[in-house]
Simulated assay, not measured.
Amino acid sequence: MPVPVRSRLAHVMGWLILLATLVGAAAADVHADDSRSATVQAPPGVTAGVAVYDRRTNTFTEQHNAHLQFRSASVVKVLIALDHLWNRGPQYTLTATDRARFDAMLRSSDDAAAGHYWSANGGSAIVHRMIARLGLVDTAGPPAGHPDVWGYTALSAADTVRIYRWILDSAPAPVRDLVMGNLRRSTRCGTDGFDQRFGIPATFEAPWAVKQGWAGFGTAGDCTDTSATVAGTTKNAARSADVDLTQRALHTTGTVGADDRSIVAVYTLQPQTTTFGAAYTNVNRLVRSLDVTAGVERTGTWFGTWGSEVRVRADATTGSTTLTRLPAGVEVLVGCQKQGQRVEVPPYSNDWWAYLPLYGGYVTNIYMSSPDNELPGVPVC
């Protein structure tokens, strides 16, 4: 029996719509270029590579040096994790010991765990396998002279978006849930004592999931976290001429919003004289300038701080529990302020305390960069 013309037309139109959808999705990759965005505000002296992708519309909302290669620092741990899981289907189960190591690598950026997998799974071959599997175009393994230096794997913002898209849209559900579940539970402090709450988590309200990266700031930070006990490790410190290792690297990558709607990849290189607190502030300012469709920015007022190992307390007293320590000279978001114990740091004296919602605690206003004891424009708690 002949198929009615209307049915044939509907069939053809259906295939045309499907083809247009596939072409549109592919175009999102094709159009990931190095064009500059009018909204990206890289602070002076900062080299930035940025890509922000809206998974609902399949479009990039930001691109700035999207294909520029950066030494990945700890962001490569996402590829190390994916490679480790690749042939462990269909349940992708890990032993208790392996699971603890895997979780620490992704949640707390544990270097010893990354080193274990790098050695056990073939080193640079991990990167080469993942390039082929995911179709990465800017990614490269560590230089020939430094095959054990996983942190000097080259990554770009565009390839990082592609990695997250594969995890979210193509990976087997157990792999997606295991990797993204860990990134959603990123700890405040890395196992080496560096504060991981910069960039995406500093700027946006939850939900978010992050894998951060840093290199060149020394071997130990000041961050403490009363919610977890972590052991110190040493950051990888080899040298190579193939990627820029002369500047300090600070990267924030991950997803923002319900259903991981926005993928954000921000890579930065900053001068060798940049402190961790200043670099942290630069990345926060850059991320706040971006068009992130799903992002709900945290409310409050940003203030600079001074001093080193400034303690964030559970309440407005020096006797209350220390929650963490601020990176020296970092800019912080203040939600409100209240009067508490008077603190003396000659020649200063102050009984006002600022509440920092990102840290869930209080800092004496003495260490806030403001001329008055009471911070201007900040409400009372």
Rank of each mutant, 00 (worst) to 15 (best):
R162T: 15
A132S: 13
T61Y: 09
D98P: 03
G213R: 05
R298G: 07
P347R: 11
D315F: 09
G14A: 12
V380T: 15
D103M: 05
G300A: 00
G277C: 12
S119K: 13
I80P: 00
A202F: 13
R165A: 02
R184S: 11
A120P: 00
Y367H: 12
T274F: 06
D148T: 15
V287Y: 05
W150R: 12
N182F: 04
A228M: 10
H31F: 09
S186R: 06
S7T: 15
G329A: 04
T275L: 14
Q272T: 14
W214V: 06
G199E: 10
P201N: 12
W86L: 10
A114N: 08
P174D: 02
T139A: 12
M130Q: 09
Q247E: 09
G45K: 02
S320T: 15
G89W: 02
L155M: 13
V378F: 01
V127N: 01
V330P: 00
A157W: 00
V266K: 10
S156P: 00
D351C: 07
H84S: 15
L134P: 00
V378K: 06
L286V: 06
S262Q: 05
G24D: 13
S369M: 11
G335A: 15
V266H: 04
T299K: 14
G213F: 05
F204S: 06
T93L: 08
N365S: 15
F217G: 03
G123P: 02
L323T: 02
R8E: 09
A20L: 13
T274W: 11
V40Q: 01
Q63Y: 11
V330K: 00
L356S: 11
